[in-house]
Amino acid sequence: MFSELKTSSLYRTTAFLLSIGIAILLLILGQSIFIPLAFAAFIAIILAPLCQYLENQGIHRNIAAFLCTLLGGAFVAGIVTFFALQISALAENVDTFEDNLNQMTVNISAYLGEYLGQSELGQLSSFNELFTFLMKDAQSAIGTLLVLVATSLITILFLSVFVVLFLMYRKDIRDFGVYLFEENGSSMRRLLLKIEKVVRNYLVGIFQVILILAVCNSIALWILGVPNALFFGIFSALLNVVPFIGPMVGSIIPAMFTVVINNSALAGVWVILYFTVIQTIESYLITPSIVGNKVRINPMFTLLAIFIGNLIWGIPGMILFIPLTAVLKQIFDEVSGLRPYASLLGELDRKKFIDEVQEVTTSSSGS
């Protein structure tokens, strides 16, 4: 059977694998550029309909792009302001939190001093002392944190500039793709529109999932008596954007806060139990129903995309590689030679596949 395999097929497969390897190498080497570019491109795709609407109202394209980016920035600033206000509201529980945490620290440090033989730990009597003990060499960490904050601000500025540029030149970028493959211009235009649609649908679907989780989390945490339930509910929902790690952190933080404030381990167990249930429902019902139908990626390759994204780009890769995989699937689905890879990634465009098979069958019978 293998002897009958065409040499051209082997060459094509080898070339494809080699291209994938080179692409991965470029993504690793250029991650400081490609990560903000990818985020900017996805944000621009989300804002493109609004930008087009403003242009249809007679507003100049450059001004419309700037206004849309400003609106997106205002939305993000609103979220940041909300969290800042909620964090300030946490100050109402600071005294209770500190007293309970100091008592817990005394108990834990005494346990560690007795069973682990650390006499210095056993002598600690407050959270402040424990914090000082653990942060003796924290000056270097603080310097690293300041560098990280400065780098983040530069990245945000870089991201905003490219969102504006993508919105301003979105039609030129689309035309470039069409002219580059002029002999298949109509197919290329259709492919670019499909890519925009699938990315936009995916991001909108993620926003819907976050909204549903925020409402459910806030109500459930309020019922369970968690202080600042709205803050922790929305915070946990937003962390759900980061697969696996996000939901874990989003459940542990409110659970620990509840344990300290209520001075009850049982309260924390109820919080963890709720998040376990809601994350199970989200993973097997909410996200597949809302997001899965929009990207049509095989769950196995969705998981693989998350792991590869983490390997190449870290946490940003875990967020970006699912829509990027959906984009690859659209490209493979449009190129007949790459159709098997599209079938491997997820559901094929069955109508187009059947039409092409009928076309080949008709041409073969005619000859």
Rank of each mutant, 00 (worst) to 15 (best):
F2N: 13
S3C: 05
L5H: 03
L10Q: 06
L10F: 07
R12P: 06
T13C: 07
T13V: 07
A15W: 08
S19N: 07
S19M: 05
G21E: 04
I28G: 05
I28A: 11
L29R: 14
G30M: 11
I33G: 12
L37K: 10
A38G: 06
L50T: 11
L50C: 09
C51N: 12
C51K: 14
Y53R: 12
Q57K: 10
G58F: 02
R61S: 04
F66Y: 09
G73H: 04
G78T: 07
F83T: 02
S88V: 10
A89E: 11
A91K: 08
E92G: 13
N93I: 08
V94L: 10
D95C: 07
T96R: 14
T96P: 03
E98G: 05
Q103A: 05
N107D: 14
G113D: 00
L116K: 15
G117R: 10
Q118R: 13
S119C: 06
E120L: 05
L121E: 03
G122C: 04
Q123N: 11
L124R: 05
T132L: 12
L134M: 07
M135S: 13
A138E: 06
A138S: 09
A138G: 05
I142R: 15
G143Y: 13
T144E: 15
A150D: 06
T151A: 09
I156L: 06
F158S: 08
S160K: 12
S160L: 08
V164K: 10
L167M: 01
M168C: 11
K171E: 12
R174I: 08
Y179P: 00
L180G: 00
S187Q: 13
R190S: 11
R190K: 11
V199G: 00
I210T: 04
L211A: 09
L213C: 04
S218I: 00
I219L: 01
L221A: 02
W222K: 03
A229S: 10
L230C: 09
F232D: 03
G233K: 03
S236Y: 01
L238K: 00
L238Y: 02
L239N: 04
L239Q: 04
P243F: 06
I245M: 02
V249M: 04
S264A: 02
A267S: 08
G268C: 03
W270K: 15
W270Q: 15
W270V: 02
I278T: 09
I278R: 08
T280E: 12
S283M: 06
I286A: 04
S289Q: 14
I290C: 01
G292V: 01
K294V: 01
R296K: 14
R296L: 08
R296P: 00
P299F: 03
P299R: 06
M300A: 14
L303R: 09
L304N: 05
L311F: 12
P316I: 05
P316N: 12
L320F: 00
I322D: 02
V327C: 03
V327F: 05
L328G: 01
E334F: 15
Y341H: 03
Y341M: 01
S343N: 09
L344I: 05
G346Y: 02
L348R: 14
K352I: 06
E356P: 03
E359G: 08
V360L: 15
T361C: 13
T362E: 13
G366A: 10
S367W: 11
S367T: 15
